Simulated assay, not measured.
Amino acid sequence: MKGCLYCWTQAELDVLDGDPALVPHDTVRRFAEEATGHFDPDEYELAWRRLAHRVIEILETSRTPCAPRDWSRRGSRAGRRTSASRCGR
């Protein structure tokens, strides 16, 4: 899978491009939270098709249901990691 190599290692992108069962939960969650511009648009759509059931599974089995508090962290964490000034996307 082609993606931002500032935010993702090639090994992580390779795992995302492979068998969805082998992608670690943390990587699936990061992928779900990541800005779309960090991946090739065609590959991003295919990756979502492969990983959507994993994202749903993680949300269903998380200790705390998906609540505004849980996703509010997304903005601050994603903003630091995906800032245009840091990775150019």
Rank of each mutant, 00 (worst) to 15 (best):
M1H: 13
K2D: 10
K2E: 11
G3I: 02
G3R: 10
C4K: 02
Y6G: 08
Y6V: 14
C7P: 07
C7G: 08
C7Y: 00
W8K: 01
Q10F: 03
A11G: 06
A11P: 00
A11K: 11
D14T: 07
V15N: 06
V15T: 12
L16Y: 03
L16C: 10
D17A: 12
D19A: 13
A21P: 07
L22I: 02
H25T: 14
H25A: 15
H25I: 12
D26Y: 05
D26E: 15
T27Y: 08
T27R: 10
V28Q: 01
V28R: 00
V28K: 00
R29F: 13
R30G: 10
F31R: 01
A32D: 08
E34Y: 08
E34A: 12
E34G: 14
A35C: 07
A35H: 13
G37C: 13
H38G: 03
F39K: 07
D40G: 04
P41C: 06
D42V: 15
E43Y: 07
E43P: 14
E43L: 09
Y44R: 15
E45V: 12
E45L: 15
L46P: 02
L46Q: 14
L46A: 15
A47E: 06
A47D: 09
W48A: 05
W48H: 07
R49F: 08
R49L: 13
R50T: 15
A52Q: 15
A52I: 15
A52H: 10
H53R: 14
R54Y: 00
E57W: 04
I58C: 11
I58P: 01
L59Y: 07
T61D: 10
T61Y: 01
T61M: 03
T61H: 11
S62H: 04
T64L: 09
P65H: 05
P65K: 03
P65A: 06
P65M: 04
P65Y: 00
C66E: 05
C66P: 01
A67H: 13
P68I: 12
R69S: 09
R69E: 10
D70F: 10
W71I: 15
S72G: 07
S72F: 01
S72Y: 00
R73T: 05
R74H: 12
R74T: 15
G75H: 01
G75P: 01
G75M: 04
S76R: 13
R77T: 15
R77S: 13
R77H: 07
R80P: 04
R81N: 03
R81F: 05
S83Q: 12
A84R: 11
S85V: 03
R86I: 12
R86L: 07
G88Q: 08
G88R: 05
G88N: 09
R89C: 04
